[in-house]
Every structure is written in C-alpha cells, then in structure tokens.
C-alpha cells in the first residue's frame, strides 16, 4: 500500500484528527493526560463501542438501526427481574440471557425489513418506541439501585486490569471490561473481513439485487445483521448497568445518535457498503473523548448534544461528498 492510499483511508484521517484533538485538549487542560482520566476515557468507550460494532454491521449492509438502546434496556431489565425472581447468582447465564433477548428483538427488526420490505429507519424507530413503551408501561419504571443490584454482576464489572493511585491520593483503575470490547471488535472485524457472511453484508450494502443474483442469501444476511446488533445491544445493556451499579429503564435514551455519529465518523457510508471496525473504534473514541473533555473543561453538558449534532452533520457531509464523488 502506498503512502497516499494510506492517507486517503478514513481510518488514517480520523486517527490524525484524534491525535490533534488530544494535543489541543491537553494544551487547554493538562489534567487530560493524567492516567486516571485516560482510564476513565477507555472505560467510557466500552458501552458505546460494543453497540457501535452492531450498528456498523447494519449500516454496511445498507440498513440502519435506532432501536438498540431500547432493546438494550429491555434485555437488561428482564434479565435483572429474572435474577431477582430466581435468586440466581452468576454472571455468564445472565449475560447470555440478555444477549438472547436482544437477538430475539433484532429478529423482529429483520422480519419487518426483509419480509415486509419496510424502510429500516421507520422499522427501528417503531420497534424502538414500542419496546421502550412496553418496558415502561408494562414491566416497570422503578430504578434498581446499588443495594438491590446483584452483587455477582457488580463484582464482575469491578475487575481491573491494573490500578494506580494518583498524586492526589485518588484511586484509578483500568477496567477489564475493555477486554470484552476488544474481543468483540476483533470478532466482528474477522467476521466482516474473512467470512462469507461478512462479505455478504458488504455485497448487500453495495447492491442488494446483484447480491441476490450472485447467489447470496439476502434473507439470512438481513437477519444476521439485525440480530447481531440486537444481541450486542442486549449484552451491552447488562454490562452498562453492571458498570454503573444502577439499572434505570429510562437510561440510554438518545444514545442511538451518539453511536450512529461515531460509526459515520469512523468512515462508514450512510448509503451502505463501506465501513470498518477500526474506523468505528476511532470514531467512538473521538466522540467519547470530545464529550468527556467538555466535562473536564467545565463546559455545560447540554453543549455535548450540540457537539454530537455537529459531528453527525459534519461527518455525514464529508462521507456523502466522498460517496458522491465516487458515483460521479
């Protein structure tokens, strides 16, 4: 690969932007470079990052998913209620269960998209609202606090890879959950690049009709991408509440925008057919870092939404411009 083609890759561009942004933020507030802040930055990447992997896959296939935060909360809440009801204390089974619920809800999206041939944005807006409404209206609205959260989950999410004591005596640790994120990222990357189902996702995003003609099973691919997004969301829902020790069914509302922003920022095309795991991870990092840095720079959190909105529009404009150039 030549130097210019490397420079043209969206991953390289976003990486350079991240480096420049880090230098700039560090200049404004040197506290940015403290190990504790770095660790918390990594920690903040995990939930958004894992969900973004699912959304990336859906977007490469030419679809979109805005229902996953609702699915995540539904899977998380049902799993916790089941744990209370049975008194089960373990980690693997609850995560498996949350994932399974997410996959089931994802299949619902896939059914409407593939079998009823509806537009993905409308389908997932609808199922998202429906699931969130069902959760709040039928299953419950009460927040589960730390005193009621199952201790195995909390203990699991508290595992640190390494920890330090800062100059101010504060304790900072690098959470082991980052390994889960990296593991999922590697798996999704290998799936997209090196398996036929992954290539079918790209083919379908490029031209669904051509994909059908060449012999791909479009139905299977559609179910695969939406179930993957749903499953990852379900898993992450439970991981999220385990990490913050608080299960609030209202949580994560509006998160779909952040995740889609991150994926687009990472070079994925809103028209489908393009995108990479590495780019998405960079996109997530960029978004989370900007949000976090607004906090340490003492800028009101309401401005975060403005920043996210600007990033979505700017990143989409750049990729749309790039894609139009390709078409022309």
């Amino acid at each position: 690969m030549t130097a210019t083609s490397l420079l043209r890759r969206p991953e390289t561009v976003i990486f350079l932007v991240i480096v420049m942004a880090m230098l700039a933020i560090g200049l404004v507030n040197p506290a940015f470079w403290q190990l504790g802040n770095m660790f918390s930055l990594v920690r903040a990447n995990i939930v958004t990052g894992i969900m973004a992997l699912g959304v990336l896959t859906v977007m490469i296939s030419g679809g979109i998913d805005v229902s996953f935060p609702a699915f995540a909360m539904m899977a998380m809440y049902l799993t916790l209620l089941w744990m209370f009801a049975t008194g089960y204390s373990g980690v693997a089974l609850p995560f498996g269960m949350a994932t399974a619920i997410g996959i089931g809800l994802g299949a619902l999206n896939a059914f409407f998209v593939h079998s009823v041939r509806m537009i993905p944005l409308i389908v997932t807006l609808g199922t998202g609202a429906l699931v969130r409404g069902f959760l709040l209206g039928v299953i419950g609205t009460s927040t589960i606090n730390i005193d009621r959260m199952p201790t195995p989950l909390i203990d699991f999410a508290r595992i640190d890879l390494l920890s330090t004591t800062g100059p101010d005596g504060g304790h900072a640790g690098l959470t082991a959950m980052v390994l889960i994120y990296l593991g999922f990222a590697l798996l999704v990357h290998l799936m997209l690049r090196h398996t036929m189902i992954g290539r079918s996702v790209f083919a379908m995003g490029g031209d669904p009709e051509a994909a059908r003609r060449v012999g791909f099973n479009i139905r299977r691919t559609t179910f695969f991408v939406y179930c993957l997004a749903g499953g990852l969301a379900g898993f992450t829902g439970l991981l999220h509440v385990s990490m913050i020790w608080l299960a609030n069914p209202h949580d994560l509302a509006g998160m779909e925008l952040d995740v889609i922003a991150a994926v687009v920022l990472g070079g994925a095309s809103i028209f489908g057919g393009r995108g990479s795991v590495l780019g998405t991870m960079f996109g997530v990092f960029m978004l989370v870092m900007v949000n976090n840095s607004l906090i340490i720079m003492h800028i009101s959190t309401t401005w975060q939404r403005v920043v996210v909105g600007v990033i979505v529009i700017a990143a989409t404009a750049v990729t749309a411009w790039r894609d139009r150039k390709r078409i022309a």
Binding site: H194, T195, G198, R199, A203, G273, R274, R326
Partner: peptide, 23 residues
Amino acid sequence: FGNLTVAENLALSNELRDRRRFV
C-alpha cells in the same frame, strides 16, 4: 459490486459455489 474490489467481484461467485464459510 461497486464497493468491492475487482478481485473480489470476480471471485465471489466461485467462493459461493464452493460453499466456503471463510474468505
């Protein structure tokens, strides 16, 4: 497939016909 390389466009149907799982 405009978003894929020439090589992959050529080889895809072969891979599919051989019922490959991995590329």
